[in-house]
Write a protein that binds this DNA or RNA. Structure first.
Lengths: 214, 214
DNA sequence: TGACGTACTATTATCGATAATCGATTCCGG
DNA sequence: CCGGAATCGATTATCGATAATAGTACGTCA
């Protein structure tokens, strides 16, 4: 396989590849990431590999022990549930802090909603997923706390959420219930009362997080 | 100044020193961290410096741009307030999720409380700070969400909190009000009703976060 | 004089090699 | 056959040097 990367800043590209492989399960939890093997695969020397690993270590995706290597710190079902708890907290916080939303925010959310519905109607699950992730990220953004937004990004919800939604899409009911649930959420956000919106949001995230239950 | 580090795993020690310097203001926001200068200071080559910087990049303490260096991403007062908001959220979550606490948790918290009181009575502010930070970290731990605990650690509350408390200790009322407030919080935690405990916790964090207001 | 391009300098990105360490295996005396 | 010391292979940690790049200072030409 040609995974050699050429253009710019090897360590960034390598880091992104490693993140994707860890989150999509290519690298299972506990796997040791051997620097020289990776270096050979990417056609680079050890240094950029190590730097990419150190960055992943900073985000908590891997752990390393001195002279004993770097290992994937798995996203097991426990950690996944905990992450959803954190995500739920952030999105609830945004609602409680900023509802009623200004027109601009509602417009952004509505655009995502429309995109979701259209993609779903066409049966295109990937664009649906893009819109859905954008919807929830926009919600966090609406809370006005930049640290929360950075945290959202550093937890790689763009990848994790995609994996979850793909699983749900392949299951019995597929994405149809989610579309309806988001529509309800959108209406409640527009209505402006926090409690019903929070309840609906909680239900949505509960549904999505079930993608990681056996 | 002899900042040369000798014993084990240079990159870890370097990383810790850099974290401390960033959080205590030695390295102001926006400062470019030059690799070769740091390498000379620590008597190491460029590689471990870079790895330490990459780890800091992962935690969000610095940012780097290709061929343009690594710069301190400042902890300005806005970010500080946002961080306290996040911390408050995590501690509230622990209370709402786990109150009433089991005897073991209450014992741990009480031990911290006792340590705080004794240190304060002796006028030793540093041990007081240790106990206070341990108290709040234990609170997060009591919530039972390991991801929250990791997040707490990755935000470096051990350093940030110390800085805040040192500032407060040097101000007018000093630490006395905090001791009393924690005693009240402890009583309310023991009582087992979430709402009053949350209110008191909010008041405490509000007080502490004022250390960063001008 | 002033806009423009070009060499220079400071700094980062990457390399290839060496030192340090760990884990397993082998070898040996009992 | 067994316990432990010595050794070997694999892997990580660090080094010193080189390549690549951005910003700057300067000189040239109109």
């Amino acid at each position: 396989m040609d995974t050699a990367l050429k253009r710019v800043c090897m360590r960034d590209r390598i880091r992104d590849v490693l993140i994707a492989r860890i989150l999509d399960g290519t690298y299972p939890a506990g796997l040791q990431l051997k620097e020289l093997s990776l270096a050979r695969e990417f056609n680079v020397s050890q240094a950029p590999i190590r730097e990419a690993l150190r960055e992943l270590e900073g985000t908590g995706l891997v752990t390393s022990e001195r002279y004993r290597g770097t290992r994937v710190r798995g996203a097991d079902s426990v950690e996944m549930r905990e992450s959803y708890e954190l995500r739920l907290m952030m999105e609830i916080h945004a609602i409680e802090r900023s509802l009623p939303f200004p027109a601009e925010t509602l417009g952004k959310l509505q655009a995502c909603m429309t995109g979701m519905k259209e993609s779903f109607a066409r049966g295109d699950s990937e664009p649906y997923i893009d819109w859905a992730l954008d919807f929830h990220r926009s919600l966090v953004e609406a809370g006005g706390n930049g640290t929360f937004l950075k945290l959202w990004d550093s937890l790689h919800w763009d990848v994790r959420g995609r994996i979850a939604l793909r699983r749900l899409a392949a299951r019995g009911a597929g994405l149809a219930p989610l579309v309806a649930m988001h529509e309800t959420l959108m209406n409640r956000l527009r209505a402006g009362a926090p409690a019903p919106a929070v309840a609906q949001l909680t239900a949505i995230l509960q549904t999505v997080s079930q993608a990681f239950e056996p």
